[in-house]
Simulated assay, not measured.
Amino acid sequence: MNTSPQELTIRCGFEFAYDATAWTPAILTVQPRLDPWQRKVREQMTFLPSTSVYVYEDAHGNIVQRFSLPPGRTTIRHDVFIGVPTTTDDHWLIDQPVPVQDVPPQLLRYTLPSRYCDSDRLMTFANQQFGDYADGLPRVQAICDWVHNHIQYRWGSGSPYTTASEILAQGYGVCRDFAHLAVALSRCFNVPTRYVTGYVPDVACWDPGSPMDFHAYMQVYVGHRWYTFDARFNEPRRGRINIACGLDAVDGAFSTLFGPAFLSSFFVWAYQVDPAVVNLGDPIDMSKRLDGTPTLRFSAA
Score class of each variant (00 low, 15 high):
residue 21 T to R: 09
residue 43 E to S: 15
residue 44 Q to L: 14
residue 22 A to T: 07
residue 45 M to S: 07
residue 23 W to Y: 11
residue 26 A to H: 06
residue 15 E to C: 14
residue 32 P to S: 04
residue 37 W to Q: 15
residue 30 V to R: 11
residue 28 L to P: 04
residue 15 E to F: 09
residue 16 F to M: 07
residue 17 A to H: 08
residue 32 P to N: 04
residue 23 W to Q: 15
residue 24 T to L: 01
residue 25 P to R: 06
residue 39 R to N: 10
residue 24 T to M: 04
residue 13 G to D: 00
residue 15 E to P: 07
residue 24 T to C: 10
residue 16 F to S: 01
residue 32 P to D: 03
residue 29 T to N: 09
residue 34 L to H: 08
residue 15 E to L: 12
residue 45 M to R: 13
residue 17 A to T: 14
residue 30 V to M: 11
residue 34 L to S: 10
residue 34 L to F: 08
residue 34 L to E: 11
residue 46 T to A: 12
residue 13 G to I: 01
residue 23 W to K: 13
residue 30 V to Q: 10
residue 24 T to S: 05
residue 25 P to Y: 02
residue 40 K to C: 13
residue 32 P to T: 03
residue 40 K to F: 04
residue 20 A to D: 00
residue 29 T to H: 03
residue 17 A to V: 12
residue 42 R to V: 08
residue 30 V to K: 04
residue 29 T to Y: 03
residue 34 L to C: 07
residue 21 T to S: 13
residue 32 P to W: 02
residue 26 A to G: 10
residue 38 Q to F: 06
residue 29 T to G: 10
residue 30 V to I: 13
residue 15 E to W: 09
residue 34 L to K: 10
residue 16 F to K: 05
residue 40 K to I: 13
residue 44 Q to V: 12
residue 19 D to E: 14
residue 20 A to Q: 03
residue 21 T to V: 09
residue 32 P to R: 02
residue 36 P to C: 05
residue 16 F to H: 12
residue 46 T to G: 05
residue 24 T to E: 02
residue 14 F to Y: 13
residue 42 R to E: 15
residue 19 D to I: 11
residue 29 T to D: 04
residue 22 A to D: 15
residue 30 V to C: 11
residue 42 R to Y: 06
residue 14 F to R: 02
residue 25 P to I: 05
residue 40 K to N: 12
residue 40 K to M: 15
residue 41 V to F: 06
residue 19 D to P: 06
residue 21 T to L: 11
residue 17 A to Y: 02
residue 24 T to N: 04
residue 38 Q to G: 04
residue 37 W to S: 13
residue 22 A to C: 06
residue 32 P to I: 04
residue 17 A to Q: 13
residue 33 R to P: 00
residue 36 P to V: 08
residue 41 V to D: 13
residue 14 F to I: 01
residue 29 T to W: 01
residue 41 V to A: 10
residue 28 L to N: 06
residue 20 A to W: 00
residue 37 W to E: 13
residue 27 I to W: 06
residue 45 M to C: 12
residue 27 I to N: 09
residue 37 W to H: 14
residue 34 L to W: 05
residue 14 F to Q: 00
residue 26 A to D: 03
residue 34 L to I: 13
residue 46 T to Y: 09
residue 18 Y to C: 01
residue 45 M to I: 14
residue 46 T to S: 12
residue 25 P to A: 03
residue 41 V to P: 02
residue 20 A to S: 09
residue 39 R to P: 01
residue 42 R to W: 06
residue 16 F to D: 07
residue 44 Q to R: 15
residue 35 D to F: 04
residue 45 M to T: 13
residue 22 A to E: 13
residue 13 G to P: 01
residue 16 F to V: 03
residue 16 F to G: 00
residue 18 Y to D: 02
residue 39 R to W: 11
residue 35 D to L: 08
residue 15 E to S: 15
residue 32 P to Y: 03
